[in-house]
């Protein structure tokens, strides 16, 4: 046969698609849950949130590798393949206005929105790359890299004070949550876990509930963070964060760092 002319993608289409489905849940879906839950902890207690950030940053030099391997690369893979999948379909909800068909369309739309949002979000908060020259020369002047790990809540909150930014975050979070909840449902079909229409209906209700809860958590995180960054609370929170920093430096948990900029 004409084996050589068949592209790598085509030859491994099945495995690649399954990997796409898998990465959507592990690690990306799991990460999304943790990310939103950790961020939502800001509502309860700023210190709890800051503690979690310290925990993450305790990885030190390993953190970028972990981030790339478990978060960025999977998202990039999932996103790029997602775009290819999106290009391979053509929605027809006009002629076939069925619930599942709308969800097919929404899955693609939310995927696209979530992908763009994540790109921007990572730039907005982290500036994409950690190279000094990039952050100072390019990311910061363009309004990115606003997050400071040792002032987690206050810097994140400050970055969310603009109403447009908040709206975009809200759209991005809800799109991501829908994409995950509905994607969980389709993944179950793809992997053959729920097969009958009855089971699929039941699981859909479960996925919808999961999505609503996760959306609530995500929204709380967003508005909690926004609240933390408001001018009336900002100083107080920075004070808490400064104290936590100093204690940790004293204990030798962390080294005094240039990242501690306020």
């Amino acid at each position: 046969m004409n084996q050589p002319t068949v592209s790598f993608l085509a030859r491994h289409e099945f495995l690649i698609r399954r990997l796409h489905s898998l990465t959507g849940i592990v690690p990306i879906g799991v990460f999304l849950c943790i990310h939103l839950a950790v961020n939502a902890s800001v509502i309860e207690d700023v210190t709890a949130f800051q503690k979690a950030v310290y925990q993450i940053h305790s990885l030190g030099g390993l953190l970028p590798f972990v981030e790339w391997a478990l978060i960025f690369l999977p998202i990039l893979f999932h996103g790029i393949l997602g775009v290819l999948i999106l290009l391979g379909g053509s929605s027809n909800t006009g002629d076939y206005p069925y619930a599942e068909n709308y969800r097919y369309l929404l899955q693609r739309a939310t995927g696209l929105i979530a992908g763009l949002f994540i790109l921007w979000h990572v730039f907005h908060m982290h500036g994409w790359f950690h190279f000094r020259w990039w952050i100072d020369g390019i990311a910061a002047p363009l309004g990115g890299a606003l997050f400071r790990p040792f002032h987690a809540a206050s810097t994140a909150g400050a970055a969310l004070q603009n109403g447009y930014v908040t709206t975009l975050y809200l759209i991005g979070i809800l799109a991501s949550v829908f994409h995950l909840a509905n994607g969980l449902w389709t993944a179950g079909i793809t992997w053959g876990i729920w097969t009958s229409p009855n089971a699929q209906k039941k699981i859909w209700r479960f996925c919808a509930a999961f999505g609503i809860i996760l959306a609530a958590i995500g929204t709380s995180a967003l508005f909690g963070m926004r609240h933390a960054g408001k001018s009336e609370t900002f100083e107080t929170i920075q004070g808490i964060e400064n104290r936590m920093y100093e204690i940790r430096v004293e204990l030798g948990d962390i080294r005094s760092s240039e990242d501690k900029r306020s």
Partner: peptide, 19 residues
């Protein structure tokens, strides 16, 4: 079913069963 153009292309729109 797992070769190119196989089951993996399905996007779970479920129009098939509806029509």
């Amino acid at each position: 079913l797992m070769a190119e153009g196989g089951i993996q292309v399905c996007g779970n729109a479920q129009n098939c069963v509806a029509v």
